[in-house]
Amino acid sequence: MKRSLVMCAAFLFICAFILHPSFAESAQQELPKKLFVTPPPFSEGIFPCSQCHAGMPVNRTPRKLEMMHQNIILKHMPGGWCFDCHNPDNRDTLRLANGKIIKFEESYNLCGQCHGTILREWKNGLHGKRTGYWNGEKQYYLCVSCHWPHDPPFKPIKPLPPPVSPSDIK
């Protein structure tokens, strides 16, 4: 399928096109000056997590959760578990593999540990989405606003109505 896509991109009314080299010279900018992100898309009432977890014992055993968070069934990172991402000592934060603690507003750096290329493309506005000003302040959508971290493929949605076809016009 991949190949056929490539094939048809080569075919048809379109020609593959590589830009004039003068376009491609400039040094690649790695990090925009300042990053504004959309707020973490928590379900209502779930944050702060410490409202329940402060003082609650930590259970590190991988298991099916039955008392709470029943909707979370990990389908990501085979063999992984909650504390590969969440911080057992303070549930209001996330924890990177190197032990660094980060806020939920910075969850893109968590994802970036394993999806480095995508993180770079996201920072450069290629993967994901930005809103705001094309020549000014932008808001970056967090990875988790499109990918539920526990089962990350983008979920299908209902399309909006097709255009009225000429035959439908009275």
Binding site: C15, F23, Q29, E121, G125, L126, W134
Partner: peptide, 15 residues
Amino acid sequence: PDSEMRYLIKHKRVF
């Protein structure tokens, strides 16, 4: 040169 358009033209094959 710092726009996302230039980034994508440089890094992806566009047509």
